[in-house]
Design a protein around this nucleic acid. Sequence first.
DNA 1: GGGCCTACG
DNA 2: CGTA
DNA 3: GCCC
Length: 399
Amino acid sequence: MDDIAKSVPVIDIQWIRDWKKLRSSDSDHDDFVPSLPPVMATSAISSSSGAEILNRRFKDLPPEELQFDDEIARRREAEANVDIAPGFINSKYECLRPTPYEPKYNRKLVSLLLLLERKRHLDNEPKRSLSYRHAISAIKAYPREIQSSKEAEKIIGVGKKMAEKIKVFLHTGTIEEADKLRYDEQFRTLSLFSKVFGVGVTTARLWWDMGYRTLQEVLASAKLTAAVQLGIELFPDFDQSRGKTKNGDVDLIISSKRPDNMKGFLNKLTRRLIEKNYLKHKLWNSTEIKKISHLERPSAGARQVFDSFEKPSTGIRRQVDLICVQPDELGTAILGWTGSKQFERSIRDYAKKEKNLLLNSQAMHLEQNGKRKKYVVHSEKDAFDMIGIPYLEPELRNC
DNA sequence: GGGCCTACG
DNA sequence: CGTA
DNA sequence: GCCC
């Protein structure tokens, strides 16, 4: 633990603004990288809060809070066969309807279903987890309180088994399996472990099976790769439950009018950021050179992930994803990196199944009689139009 | 009973 | 296996 | 676990 940094450099967001200004005036220069401002301040991280998290042991701790309101569920009219809410876009494609970050209705039900989804995920049942994801997204978007399980089952994504759970919820105010998870040491420990960068459900369960119950025990005892050790040491900084802000990480998508040197730019930029001590750790790196056949020359698709700064006066570290793309990839890159995860899955699913359009974060292709035709997507709006679905603001993509 | 986003290291 |  |  002693080698965990006790302080981090912070940077003014003004640097980003200056960068943008410089970029527009001097963007043709081949390997232009803005000069960097001096580090503004160094602020201490309180090591006690970090240590508390690393030593957190869930045995005998108070139960996990529900994601949304822990309201007392009112008793509803039993099994009224009401119509589905008017105006609700009842589809298996989440990308067709607005989904708020926080639901107005059915908040406790959503909170309980989220616990069950996470449980299926941690139990390595990704298909069942996905089913819960679909149902949760639909209920988050549903525009009124659900009155009965009959009503719930009319929602596409809610099947017999979930309707039964909802029925019990409407009568008792809770779902026993979900509520028990809030007190469940294994569930909570696996949840914690899998939040560490580089640790998924398999590693989390491996650690549990080896008898570890805190991250500190893992640090002390397990044979760890350097990457995972770094992930644990950074965890207190990245932990989002402590902060007020909802989004902990920052994505920067960088493009250039010069199509052929994005890899060089990214390498130069990151090297300079490291030299100047803005980036403390490189968590991940991808700089593969891809062949673009019709250009007959190598082109770059690249992405990097770092730990960094970004909050003056708080000293909170941020994960920063740097993504460099070619200009004709900018629209799909922004669409693909904005999320939510479920929104991305949904819009790609819809594009393929309904429009024969293959979508990823680099391009959109039309597939017809065995041939693939590339479409250039200039903006997010462009992408929605080409797919033929109504535009959704990013704030309403919380599927 | 098949499919469940897609790509990357 | 993990990341987005 | 649910849709098609």
